[in-house]
Design a binder for these strands. Structure first.
Lengths: 197, 197, 197, 197
DNA sequence: AATGAATGAGGCTTCATTCAT
DNA sequence: TATGAATGAAGCCTCATTCAT
């Protein structure tokens, strides 16, 4: 195996970890398998990351960041309703279209993080929620919307997308999931209409 | 030493497994820890359940059954709207009130089951979904509701309760979750009103 | 499983042990497998034999006895050459015709016995050798044959039959073994002719 | 701690395995005991040989090779009779003089190999037989000897040496074995004289 | 007398990690 | 700097045996 600078290795290892976690679960993601998947010697993993947990933290950060990108890319810069719907839609589409490994690994890691003392699962959620809230707040500027309502909309977006992804990951039936995504958006619309009436 | 019928031992072990899974995840649920939690020697675990996987299967069955009970107990025998809402409410309340270990262990196990070739996570979902559907169908009798709508309502109940539980398990903030449960029901009501208009 | 008197059980267990040893080796002959093969509860094995080693000793005795029977049945009551040849032939034929499990289990057990402090493999050999010698001695009565020669003939019979059985058990090719048995007898004849010239 | 190349470690482990197998049988040759005998931590054994079975395979190969060496070293490059006798003599002497563990372990392993699906005991025998045959064939060149006779001589060499070693391993009486080796060679000579008359 | 229940000891293997180079 | 070599801890499972009934 050719000697490769540590910086590149780190990236490869994080990617490898995501792939392995997605396919074999957090528990199945052993250092050996991750190193193998990254085409790197086992010792290199610990040379780059000292600890498995630190590698996982890096993975965590990568996922968090990706989440934020998705949300920001979904911002249509419209009014509150349009913006909120677009954001939900954006997340659902990302789950459907982008590498399904990301969604799967996310879920695995969140369970894992819940059990770690150091890395609360809460971080991803908070981060994502903050992004959602700030986008919504900007969209609501000028309209008279109380902050609790902004938060509640954010919560509902999260709840619906989480609920959607659980089913999607469980069944893995894409054509059905596409329809379900529409249903989810319908549900959101119906509630928003009442809420912002 | 105390001569306990195997059936009781099995029960104790299943309970212990649920507790350990809830607190340390499926991967952290080692035979040793489960046996310890059940206050039994390690070998006893293998006397009662030839294999760790068989023990987990038993846990799986227990959870599936519990799920069904909750759904059936939530049946108010009213019209479609009332029945659907009651069922969603029932599941949310169960998550909130009953042993949170059940919810947590459920989620853990579903991820686990997804990776097992033999035990598709799908079973729990299918089982639950079938119960929901049959209850809804009975409630809709007489009214002119197409079966696709029944299925869709079932799906939304599932999606909302899954989304709810993810947040609840992540943050573990009960008072907030109680409010969120109300929001979830509101969302459901808004959609149902439109759907069955 | 029906309750069966201990005496019968002992026989069944010995037979079961022979079958299991033959098919899975001494090491693969676990108490559980033997009990299962005998269609008896596991605890019964220890009720009848207190110890696995005692069961094996019983198996050992059974095999020793069978060996003696074969030798005695092969006695043609002729002169030394005829008697010796008949005995070798008898053993070879027994290996070929009788239950091959016996031969296989014998070899397994002899290896095992060599490692036991209590049950020297030597017993079977001595027992068999004594029978051979006494039969030969009687056949040689009247002829002027020194006792060392009697012993040597016995040794050659043993060596040839052991060598034969190793090959036979290794290849398990019966038709070839039948020819080889003839070769073995030819070898014996050639030597005897020179020896007793 | 001492940094030893893996190749050496492997050798040590193979040697240790042979010793343990010889003294405690294949079944008594546990990974723990082998590691201890090699003065290595248990995990090291699995670092060098992913599996116990792979270690045993290596042992097998070592023995096979040793066998071949013995046969080739015994080749006197004489005529057929001299060559055949020398080869038998060489094997007997090897059994007697060289490390008796080799002979013992060989026998143990052949029983073991017979029960493995993948590693037929047959390999050792075939390998040895092929060597014997090719040496005999070269010695017979020019003389008019049918190939079946070559094979038969090879078989008799195998049978006599196997029979010899069983007794030698069983009784472990060296001085008696030395005499018996002579008897065995006499037997062989007598038969060869008749056969090649 | 006979057997279901129970168990300590030990089997093989894999893990994350550290060491020596 | 990078990495083959090495390892203690822990994983799941099976063994022969004993206990309580």
């Amino acid at each position: 195996m050719a000697r490769v600078p540590a910086a590149e290795r780190r990236d490869e290892l994080v990617n490898a970890a995501i792939r392995v976690i997605a396919s074999r679960g957090v528990d199945g993601a052993t250092t050996r398998r991750i190193a193998e998947q990254a085409n790197a010697p086992l010792a290199t993993l610990h040379y780059c990351f000292q600890t498995k947990e630190l590698l996982f933290t890096a993975v965590f950060e990568r996922l968090t960041e990706r989440y934020r990108e998705v949300l920001i890319e979904s911002d249509v810069h419209g009014d509150l309703v349009a913006t909120a719907r677009a954001m939900l839609r954006g997340v659902l589409d990302w789950y459907l279209e982008s590498d399904p490994e990301f969604a799967s690994a996310s879920f695995e890691l969140i369970s894992w993080a819940q059990r770690q003392e150091e890395h609360p699962a809460v971080t991803v959620y908070n981060e994502a929620f903050n992004v959602v809230r700030s986008i919504l707040a900007r969209a609501a500027a000028g309209q008279d919307v109380p902050p609790e309502t902004i938060d509640e909309i954010g919560y509902v977006i999260g709840t619906l997308s989480d609920g959607f992804v659980v089913n999607w990951l469980t069944y893995g039936n894409r054509s059905r999931a596409v329809q379900q995504a529409q249903t989810v958006v319908d549900v959101f619309d119906a509630w928003l209409a009442v809420k912002l009436a």
